[in-house]
Design a binder for these strands. Structure first.
Lengths: 215, 215
DNA sequence: TAGATTGTTAATCGATTAACAATC
DNA sequence: TAGATTGTTAATCGATTAACAATC
């Protein structure tokens, strides 16, 4: 049993490799870690280590079988076993995520969305119903929801998070620009747009201060 | 001149601190790093180091002046000097980002969006015009655009990236689930939804395999 | 056999945390 | 003075990269 203890940084790159392999599988049957590294501008040892965490079936001189590698990546990422998911906060961002059909390929299945705005109750976005937020607990328990997506305004994020944790959810995907407090054993993945922008804007200002770039 | 060389991990937390300070500034005038750490479940030394990178005006026993700290954070994050931005790919996600009014607070100003679908040309989303993608280069050069947001399908992402880089853009916010290759001096920040989901789903499966949680 | 490629062990680097001295 | 708090220096931890041995 390899399987376990894949480093988080590795896990982040696996879906990228998988997508690439799918795009070339009809053209070539074997590929080397070096070639994949080349494609994405990564270090070749890093790619080899990443693949080693899920595969171990690479062969010197020939590399990896593309179809075998695809199967191993899909297995490791758990695509195929859909994770039952709900979304809380059907504003612009929430609706966009509901409409995004790509999630089905990534191993999650959004069962329903919740909002506190009565005007939205009973409507559908991307084929998913928007329900009153007071029904949150009942639905989560009833349908054995595993993953919660938070797209509410920042001032309600912690409260929604607490309610999700209380009904057994152990993984939260947070789009509100704050750090959520959760008990041990619950994982939060932050998609903090403000943080990302801060990094990019800082880079731009430092660049124009002189330094590296001669523009 | 302190200012420079703020670690990326620190930079990611600064917008979170800033938002929190704004929410309490009417209630209290001073706050300690310890109290902020408590609020977000972080290590107090970490918060002190983060604040030290932009402030240095904390005083033993009293902590930091809230208003002073807010000013220093806004200065460091460059809020106030808007970064001219364009968005490429006005699908569901692209439109959601265009409609999101919060960006104005984060120091960027989206000037226009581009798409290759003629049906969208000339329409407005969130008050921003959607233009033909062939006009990309002209607008970028003309308006001196600094930052590009990529929300096109993954198979076009690298090509759009290359075009943006070619017309002088040095910071790219990438929502396509791939790793973009860029020359030295150009920064890419990935908002890879597939990667985030991979981490969360993996956590859920490991949890239910037994291990830590006794459910 | 020679060379491409894998996979492992060791070195480096950056971020977090712990220990401690300085200060109001 | 005593205690809360800051800020710095050292230790730890995880991720990346370099060096190298193994193999087809």
């Amino acid at each position: 049993m390899k399987e376990k203890n894949i480093p988080i940084s590795t896990l982040r790159r696996l879906p990228v490799y998988l997508h690439y392999l799918n795009s070339i599988k009809d053209k070539i049957s074997n590929i080397s870690a070096t070639a994949i590294a080349e494609e994405f501008g990564l270090n070749d040892v890093q790619v080899r280590k990443d693949l080693g965490a899920v595969s171990g079936s690479g062969r010197p001189k020939t590399g990896y079988s593309v179809t075998e590698l695809i199967a191993q990546l899909e297995e490791a990422l758990g695509y195929g076993t859909k994770t039952k998911t709900i979304l809380v906060g059907a504003g612009n961002l929430g609706k966009a995520l509901l409409s995004y059909s790509g999630f089905a390929d990534y191993g999650i299945d959004i069962i329903a969305a919740f909002d506190n705005n009565p005007a939205l109750w009973g409507t559908f976005v991307g084929g998913k119903p928007i329900l009153p937020d007071i029904d949150l607990e009942a639905v989560c328990r009833d349908k054995k929801i595993m993953l919660g997506i938070i797209t509410v305004p920042v001032e309600h994020a912690q409260e929604i998070c607490d309610r999700l944790v209380a009904c057994g959810i152990r993984a939260i995907w947070n789009f509100a620009p704050t750090i959520l407090r959760v008990p041990e054993g619950v994982m939060v993945e932050n998609e903090n747009l403000a943080s990302s922008l801060a990094i990019l804007c800082k880079h731009l200002r430092e660049g124009s201060n002189g330094e590296d770039y001669l523009e």
